[in-house]
């Protein structure tokens, strides 16, 4: 995947990603209209499909709302890269199939507006603007298996078939 970068800072919380005032629905497209609204009020209008979010520490901290990765995915964001992720956001992203990578070096060095390409399988990030390459730790096999089944629902269906 390849796209233009939108950059955010430390501790972007789930209330900034999708404020609770919009949580009276779980409709993905409705949530996408307000994605990142309390961090950048015009983000949803500006962002184009395929774009990549790069943030610093503890991205997605706060509530467990899966609406946060759902809104990001539905807005057409192809990948989120951060220095680190809050743990519930991290597992939600894996469970719903939103590609994410934790890579401190990439999070520090990538600038807003850079064009980057991501090789998810190997965890490699190419910055086409600055011509740098960054390496994230690839996913452990257990998580790769969940993602290979299309997320947790696919994985559970597979488990249930095995049980029969």
């Amino acid at each position: 995947m390849q796209g233009m970068v939108w950059k955010f800072g430390n501790d972007v919380d789930t209330d900034a990603i999708i404020p609770a005032r919009y949580l009276n629905t779980s409709e993905a497209s409705a949530l996408a209209q307000h994605v990142m609204e309390d961090a950048d009020p015009t983000f949803a209008q500006k962002v184009t499909p395929g774009s990549i979010i790069v943030a610093l520490k503890n991205f997605g901290c706060g509530s467990s709302r899966e609406h946060a990765p759902i809104a990001i995915k539905a807005a057409g964001i192809s990948c989120v890269i951060a220095h680190s992720f809050a743990r519930i956001f991290y597992r939600n992203a894996i469970n719903i199939g939103l590609p994410i990578l934790a890579c401190p070096e990439a999070a520090e060095k990538i600038a807003a507006g850079d064009e980057i390409r991501v090789d998810l399988e190997n965890g490699t990030i190419y910055n086409l603007t600055s011509k740098e390459t960054y390496q994230a730790a690839p996913f452990p096999p257990f998580m790769q298996n969940i993602m290979a089944k299309g997320g947790l629902i696919g994985y559970v269906q597979w488990r249930l078939q095995q049980q029969q």
Binding site: S64, I88, R91, N95, I96, I153, V156
Partner: peptide, 28 residues
Amino acid sequence: DSHTCTYGALGALATGVGSTDMAAAMAL
């Protein structure tokens, strides 16, 4: 719900997860 960790006060391992986790756990 992220504040599921409240029950740690009772000596439980209690932790917040997402909705898909909840769906999977309701089945399995």
